[in-house]
Nucleic acid binder design. Structure first.
Lengths: 251, 251
DNA sequence: CCCCAGGAAATTGGATCCAAAATTGCCAAT
DNA sequence: ATTGGCAATTTTGGATCCAATTTCCTGGGG
């Protein structure tokens, strides 16, 4: 239940742990784009030697989160706004395709029950007529699970892999929901209702179209925000844990 | 011109060279699925120490070509037929989307010239009314360039990355053309004609549909062959270098 | 005042060394 | 004869060491 869909604790190596940590730091924005990843520095930062660190860096570079230049080390990759837009465009196609695949299969009762649970959970969280910020993590989880359920229903591991990669961009992750506007989030959850029902009833094309719009709109919203305030988006995704309050050095 | 679209010789590290070599060996089938990749063995096989080798293995594992288990090493990943099918399905969607993106942009004269050159080259290679096996490498190159041109025209680096990953499956690479049937290859090249023209004229949806069928059909053909003769496909993509002629153990 | 050259310091890539885990083989016991 | 367990060997993962490249700083020349 609680275990993720991907890979269970097969990673006991410190290289994997280090990779996970660094990935997290980059996606959270703690390591900002362009920043050099000094091996000596990082290795004693994380309490390991350079060997597992280098393995981790090689993996993360392969994922595309950091850039590598021979003899010049790694640095956090900077994504342009247009690359973010492109990521959403492709993700929309892929998740739309996933809907179509999912709908073309026989949907079991338990699947329908899962959809129902997720959609109902969303209803509950939004029932107040406004989204309490404290409920945002819960909504986020529900959202992630909803999208993952569809992808898993499609039964095509490539989709899963590629969609996950589109999340491998700072600020683009599903975990980030920056809809301060209740109407927008309400509408988005209404999409969930329709998509779930469409898939359950075998309406593949309709589910696909809904999903494409669902994702593209979220992308447009984010791109818009990014253009207005390239830094500020980070703030709105929780994690007010910026220990030093002097973070707003807009001088 | 001749330099690839991706990354130019920024890889001077032996880890990159080793990775390229191993990748090649896997895709060529020299390292068969399930085979363990013993580090000591491989490292002196390739004339490097284990350090760059391990880096290379970590990268290739990240790409999905090999599996990894902590403390138990790497082994060549085995792809099921259905995974191969899935790869083609996703690739079809992605390349179809690339066509749509490409068509939605202004196509320059030089682009049209490039299309023309490629398509004409194909015509020339097929002009004999039968495909001389010696011309197959040339046709393969043309085919790869045609698909890459469209993807680059789409201007979405994610598509490029993901499509490349779908090629990262033994037997699925664009380099492999197993159409012994002249009619089929002729029809396939006719698709090229239509797709190029459709993109040039801004007929995005039509180009998309053509491309989807173009890719899916190739996938069906391969899947069919794989089901009939899981091993034999390797033979038909050149590289008759199987030193021992006792390879046809169909008894 | 700026720019280029040269050398020192820092940093990366590769090789080697060591510990921990897994695999293998052997022997005994049922 | 088969199975279970114990020990030796193999193999992997991590740490350290060394060479090579890069970066940075300084000083001299234009």
């Amino acid at each position: 239940m609680s275990t993720a869909t991907t890979s269970l604790p097969s990673e006991i190596t410190s290289a994997d742990l280090v990779a996970k940590t660094i990935r997290e730091k980059i996606l959270e924005g703690e390591l900002e784009p362009g920043r050099r990843l000094q091996q000596d520095h990082l290795s004693d930062m994380l309490g390991v030697s350079r060997t597992p660190l280098r393995t981790a860096l090689a993996m993360i570079a392969q994922e595309g989160l950091i850039d590598y230049e021979a003899n010049r080390g790694y640095r956090v990759r900077a994504f342009s706004i247009s690359e973010v837009r492109d990521a959403f465009a492709v993700r929309a196609q892929l998740e739309g395709f996933a809907c179509r695949c999912a709908a073309s299969r026989k949907v079991s009762e338990v699947t329908i029950a899962k959809f129902d649970a997720l959609v109902t959970e969303g209803d509950r969280l939004l029932s107040g007529g406004t989204l309490d910020p404290s409920l945002l993590p819960a909504y986020r989880r529900m959202n992630v699970q909803f999208h993952q359920l569809i992808i898993s229903l499609a039964g095509n591991s490539w989709i899963e892999s590629f969609v996950r990669q589109t999340h491998n961009v700072p600020l683009v992750s599903d975990r980030i929901i920056l809809w301060d506007d209740y109407d927008i989030i309400y509408r988005s959850h209404d999409d969930h209702h329709r998509i779930a029902k469409a898939i359950a009833q075998g309406e593949g094309i309709r589910a696909e179209n809904l999903m494409i719009e669902h994702v593209i709109f979220a992308g447009k919203l984010l791109a818009e925000k990014l253009e207005m305030d390239p830094q500020g988006v980070l703030m709105s995704h929780g994690r007010t844990s910026n220990h030093s309050p002097k973070s707003h050095k807009n001088g």
